[in-house]
Structure formats: structure tokens, C-alpha cells
């Protein structure tokens, strides 16, 4: 469960990337964030693990408030999957996956590369789970294709059995078939652990297919929140074209509807 309460983010240059974001994502939900470039999707995701510091509001993750004091331990419970995979390309696939355990492995062991048999077994199991042939285990990550690299990225993300998975455009640079496979992997692996997923996407069809819920963002605000079925083509047009929807009277009702997954428009 992730609760954003009146989250705002103003960059030093004055850009208001998030303004008064109130949304809560129940445990185990696969929530997709849609919105045009610059809407604040990445910024919102990155506030969850503190990579971006908010300038206002509170974030609770499974009941723990994110503060400077709790950030370090919270991060171990929040995994992240990146658009550009973010692997260490000159390092082996195995080392990249095991790097997902670094927060809980002693510095000495990490530097010497001595991972316990249980840890190595888990890395192998996860690589098998994401469908990467064991023959790639000791190959350099940089030699893999984009799709294979993202499989490694997903395996790394699940090494610590996260409660929350943040995925920032995880399939932006992959072909449609591989994109579906990767998103299925993320969804299924998260389901097995009852982890909450917050995933930003640019492909509306994938959002409708995989999301339990779709949150539409624009100019740092949430302008749509509902089920894929409710995210009609007109809503989509409006989200990307920037048509202004009626009034902001609905704004007050936002919290009420949030958990019930009612479609609604927050002041655009």
C-alpha cells in the first residue's frame, strides 16, 4: 500500500513537477501511470524511494512514513525497474542480479564477491523465472539484447522480495512482443509476493491490458483515476490532447472514490 498525501515537488528552477498529488494504491495492485511527456510520472515514482525529495506532503509505504530516518530501510523494501535497464554492463549477469542483494550483504562479502549458496541459488531461480537461459549466467550484461537485459533488471528487482515495485517505462525501448512478456513477468512476480506495482507507461494498449487501475497525469496533477474499462478513447484523447474537463467540484470527492476505484476527474 502506497499513500501519497498532498505530494508536491518544485524543482529549484521553478518547475512544478508535482502539485498536490493525493492517491493511494492498495496492496497488491498493479497501477499504471499514463500521461504525456513531462507530466511528472518519473518524478512521482522517484519520490517513493526518495531518489527525488518532495517539497511537500507525506508518503506512507505499508504504514511506514518515508522520512530521512526511514529512507534507508524503506528502500530495501522498494524495488525499481528502469527504462534503460541500468545494469553494470561490464559485469556478469550473475553479479548484476546479486547486486540486488547489496543492502543486506556485508561490505566485505560484497567486495570479495562471496555470496552465500542460498543467495546464489536465489539468483539462479529468479533468472530462470524471468526466462533467461542459464548459459548467460556468467556472460557480460552488456552482451545481452535489450529484452534480455530487462529480464536481468526484473530478476535483480525481485532479489529482496520487495513489497513495492516501481517501474519507470520498463518497456519503452522494447518491441511489442517482448514488452508484453516483460510486463507479464513483472505482474506475475509481483502477484506471487503480493507486491504493489507502480508502473509508468507510454503505451495505452499495454496500460489497459496490464493495469488493475490507470492513473492519468498531466502537468503534475492527477487528471484521471479509474479502471482500464473506464479509460475510454475519449479519456485518452483528453489526457494527451489536453482538453479541459468541466469543473473542479469533483476534487473534493477524490479521496472518497479513491479506494473504490471510481472514475473521476480531478481539476485539470
Amino acid at each position: 500500500m502506497i499513500e501519497f498525501q498532498q505530494i508536491s515537488k518544485k524543482w529549484p528552477d521553478g518547475t512544478l513537477a508535482l502539485s498536490d498529488v493525493n492517491v493511494s494504491i492498495p496492496k497488491g495492485q498493479f497501477c499504471v501511470i499514463l500521461g504525456p511527456s513531462g507530466a511528472g510520472k518519473s518524478t512521482l515514482l522517484r519520490t517513493v524511494n526518495g531518489l527525488t525529495q518532495t517539497t511537500g506532503g507525506r508518503i506512507n509505504i505499508d504504514g511506514t512514513e518515508l522520512t530521512a530516518a526511514t529512507a534507508r530501510t524503506l528502500r530495501q523494501r522498494v524495488a525499481m525497474i528502469h527504462q534503460h535497464f541500468n545494469l553494470t554492463l561490464r559485469m556478469s549477469v550473475a553479479a548484476n542480479v546479486l547486486a540486488g542483494l547489496l543492502p543486506v550483504v556485508s561490505t566485505g562479502r560484497a567486495i570479495l564477491g562471496w555470496f552465500e549458496p542460498a543467495h546464489r541459488a536465489k539468483a539462479c531461480a529468479l533468472l530462470a523465472r524471468v526466462g533467461l537461459d542459464p548459459k548467460h549466467l556468467l556472460r557480460r550484461a552488456g552482451e545481452l539484447s535489450g529484452g534480455q537485459q530487462q529480464r536481468v533488471g526484473v530478476a535483480r528487482a525481485f532479489m529482496l522480495d520487495p513489497e513495492v515495485v516501481l517501474a519507470d517505462e520498463p518497456v519503452a525501448s522494447l518491441d511489442p512482443k517482448i514488452s508484453r512478456e516483460i510486463l507479464s513477468l513483472i505482474r506475475d512476480a509481483a502477484r506471487e509476493r503480493n507486491a504493489t506495482v507502480l508502473c509508468s507507461l507510454h503505451q495505452v494498449d499495454l496500460a489497459r491490458e496490464f493495469g488493475d487501475r490507470i492513473v492519468g497525469m498531466r502537468d503534475g496533477k492527477i487528471v484521471f483515476d479509474g479502471t482500464p474499462a473506464e479509460f475510454t478513447d475519449e479519456r485518452m484523447e483528453a489526457l494527451y490532447q489536453g482538453a479541459q474537463w468541466e469543473d473542479n467540484a469533483v476534487a473534493e470527492a477524490a479521496d472518497l472514490y479513491n479506494d473504490a476505484l471510481q472514475p473521476q476527474l480531478v481539476a485539470a
Binding site: 524511494n49 534507508r72 530501510t73 528502500r75 525499481m80 528502469h82 547489496l102 543492502p103 561490505t107 535483480r156
Partner: peptide
Amino acid sequence: EALEAIGAG
């Protein structure tokens, strides 16, 4: 950034 995000130190 990937390692920082999980709090690797």
C-alpha cells in the same frame, strides 16, 4: 542509480 535506489550504500 539502480543501486542507490535500493539503498546499497
